[in-house]
Write a protein that binds this DNA or RNA. Structure first.
Length: 723
DNA sequence: AGCACGCCGACT
DNA sequence: GTCGGCGTGCTC
């Protein structure tokens, strides 16, 4: 049943709800005495629980406040908690002319609960319309959204905008398919390569809630391993949810689920590129309980899976797990909240390990799920480092700008299969660097990246100032070098050096999903690497130092993650890889071998790296042990918010400092100053264990201030980019 | 956000 | 006297 196209009617033929509102006007007109609410003589109200508490979704009042509306008798049956409604807001202040009310537009909202009477000491307006009887905001989802709002010092309405899919009347009008019975518990398959793997699956299958940080072995098995973990959970009669960073990965896991579950009926893929109608259709199938397993990208973290038994996240270090819309919740943390509130199992899978994951292991909340060294050695390729300053002896190698070892490795590997070449994305890394120590060249004013306008002039890429007398802040050097060669030029140069071999590129604009098991050079930016059907014979990781040189707390972690991702697509060293020719794959990384992320790659020891990083950050008072929040906005607004917040004992304020302008070209994000305005940012830091107190203080301070759009500073709990 | 109310100065 | 500036506060 669909009432989607029903518009508010002419007041002349107003519904019961409208009439109630009009009665209210009349009551108000009788000046002098305050109108008594809840005396609705003559108006037909719902007999039981005649008051609906409504969360107004959009519009001016995005406060975490519920508004009480009267439920007309005719809407009684449909106006259940969780349904979408439309209400008039601000009508009481509107003028009444010739019996027509003006002002007070219709706003969308959700009925949160039905109650017997209202605390509001005034006349209640009536619900204008029940948009549809579908209870889309169930108690579990509501509780989750509230928890996320609290955790991130945001409003419930903001979180609901992230969590709730757009309604589509056609999809809602269709019945969802009947649910299939739980499958049989799956065989462990390649989970047997992990000592604790089969036990983890058994725990899920018998209805327990194990929690693990899984360091996946390199190679092509992890999508299937995800599917097996989901299937084990389904076998217990519970549901499962897996969140991955991008649509391409979601499709791989989805395909594996179809194989493991023997068909498409028990799971859904939830990604943005399905389009709104299909997305809503699938979301409803989940909400109605006809499908209990979900794999999807970020927004799927809110999917209202019934009786959830397992939440999972893959590659939690990927930036796309963090929503850009306020309050910018991170999928890892949302799923952690779900694991706790909904009492589910938890699986964080990654080729590497983030510092946050290391913390979960360290404090004992999750157990490590790792393979033995033996298995790791067999599955990982051989990693060799090479100093990219080394002068190539061969003429061809010089032409391709490759050191001899890299050149020889590529040439040899090309006889056995495809070779992956990873090139940092332009714009992601500094364009110029000190020739001596490779410190990125930064603007003295705003620390933006310097660029060469021509042979003579340096210009800041952010603020546009000239830099006439650059010298290196680290070593005092005065000579610069172009830092990286872009993917396209790399592809051209390699194509000339290996004329007989096809060169393919994969990057931001066109991402290849896979390449066949034939000799080819595949030039890719991090994160866009195609899977090679028998594994790559070799990989070349170029400009490692440039990735490491980013002025970011997470530069080392990110670099290692990108390298592991590329290297995991290369045939294993010990077993020659699946479909290989019996000889193992090699990775050549052009980076300084003494750097810790480089050593971690060579030893294939992401867990050890993350543990050290965690210890170091803990000592320095950095997240995630200490918790932080960034407050960004016009200088006075930032200062006022911080001053008015009852910050927890021992909280430190770092800054505020002027915010560098957003790099041109990037779409504006919350916390970016509008063009032409100068904003500041302050960081708040609290001791371990006080994160929720910090969020609560900020939320309260925000609520205390008048909601005045742009003048209100943006609050970001757990900022990712703190330099 | 709108939209009222309200308390001040400049005008017919 | 009254018109209208935009500073506060309310909207179920």
């Amino acid at each position: 049943m669909s009432r989607d196209n029903e518009r508010p009617r002419d007041p002349a033929e107003a519904s019961d709800g409208e009439q109630l509102a009009l009665i209210r006007e009349t009551v108000r007109k009788a000046k002098g005495e305050r109108a008594r609410p809840r005396t609705w003589r003559g108006a037909k109200l719902a007999g039981e629980l005649p008051v609906a508490r409504v969360l107004v979704d959009k519009g001016p009042v995005h406060l975490d406040k519920l508004w009480d509306y009267a439920v007309p008798a005719e809407m009684d049956a449909e106006a259940r908690p969780g349904v979408r409604v439309r209400v008039r807001f601000g009508a009481g202040t509107g003028k009444v002319r010739e019996g027509r009310r003006e002002g007070g537009g219709l706003l969308d909202g959700y009925i949160i609960e039905r109650v017997g009477e209202s605390d509001y000491r005034g006349p209640l307006a009536a619900l204008a319309q029940v948009v549809s009887p579908e209870p889309v905001l169930g108690p579990g989802l509501l509780a989750l959204c509230r928890a996320v709002a609290d955790r991130y010092a945001g409003s419930l309405a903001d979180v609901l905008q992230l969590a709730m899919p757009k309604r589509n009347a056609r999809a809602e009008g269709e019945p969802s398919p009947p649910p299939l019975p739980p499958p049989e518990p799956p065989a462990p398959g390649s989970w047997a390569r992990y000592p604790a793997g089969p036990g983890f699956l058994e725990a899920l299958a018998r209805g327990d809630r194990p929690r693990a940080v899984w360091t996946a072995l390199p190679g092509p098995h992890w999508p299937r391993e995800w599917a097996t973990a989901v299937a084990a959970t389904l076998a217990s009669g519970r549901g499962a949810l897996v969140v991955v960073p991008d649509g391409r990965t979601a499709e791989r896991v989805d395909a594996a689920l179809t194989e493991v579950l023997g068909g498409p009926g028990r799971h859904v893929l939830l990604t943005a590129d399905l389009g709104p109608e299909e997305r809503y259709r699938r979301w409803l199938a989940v909400s109605r309980g006809s499908v209990r397993a979900v794999v999807g990208t970020r927004a799927a973290m809110f999917a209202p899976v019934r009786d959830l038994g397992l939440v999972g996240i893959w590659d939690d270090g990927d930036r796309s797990h963090s929503d850009e819309r306020l309050p910018q919740p991170h999928a890892r943390d949302v799923l952690l909240l779900r694991a706790v509130h909904e009492k589910t199992g938890f699986l964080l899978g990654d080729l590497g390990r983030t510092v946050e994951a290391a913390q979960l292991v360290e404090n004992g909340w999750a157990r490590p799920l790792e393979a033995d060294r033996e298995q790791v050695r067999a599955a990982a390729p051989l990693i060799r480092t090479v100093d990219e300053g080394e002068v190539a002896r061969d003429a061809e190698a010089r032409a391709a700008r490759l050191p001899t070892l890299a050149w020889q490795t590529v040439r040899e590997a090309l006889t056995r299969g495809p070779v992956l070449v990873q090139v940092p994305r332009r714009g992601y890394v500094p364009k110029l660097a000190c020739e001596r120590c490779r410190e990125p060249a930064r603007c003295a004013h705003c620390s933006g990246p310097l660029e060469a306008r021509d042979a003579e002039h340096l210009v800041c890429g952010w603020c546009g100032r000239d830099e006439p007398a650059w010298h290196c802040r680290e070593c005092g050097g005065v000579r610069l070098r172009a830092s990286i060669v872009g993917a396209r030029r790399t592809a051209e140069e390699l194509g000339r050096a290996f004329p007989a071999v096809p060169v393919r590129t994969s990057g931001r604009d066109h991402v290849l999903t896979s390449v066949p098991d034939r000799p080819a050079l595949v030039v890719s930016t991090p994160g866009a690497e195609p899977v090679a059907e028998g594994g790559y014979a070799a990989a070349l990781l170029l400009d490692g130092w440039a990735l490491l040189g980013r002025p970011d707390l997470r530069a080392g972690e990110d670099a290692l993650r990108h390298w592991l991702e590329a290297a995991s697509l290369v045939r294993g060293h010990g077993d020659g890889g699946e479909g290989g020719d019996g000889r193992g794959g090699t990775v050549v990384i052009m980076a300084e071998p003494t750097q810790r992320p480089v050593q971690a790659l060579v030893r294939w020891d992401p867990a050890g790296y993350a543990a050290r990083e965690l210890a170091e950050r803990s000592q320095l008072g950095f997240p995630p042990i200490s918790r932080m929040a960034a407050v960004t906005g016009p200088a006075e607004a930032v200062a006022e918010l911080i001053a008015s917040a009852g910050l927890p004992e021992g909280a430190e304020t770092l800054g505020p400092v002027p915010l560098p302008p957003a790099p041109p070209g990037r779409p504006r994000r919350p916390g970016d100053p509008p063009p032409g305005e100068v904003w500041e940012r302050a960081l708040l830091r609290v001791r371990p264990g006080q994160g929720s107190a910090l969020a609560a203080a900020l939320k309260e301070a925000k609520a205390g201030r008048l909601a005045r759009g742009e003048k209100d500073p943006a609050v970001r709990v757990d900022p990712l980019d703190i330099g």
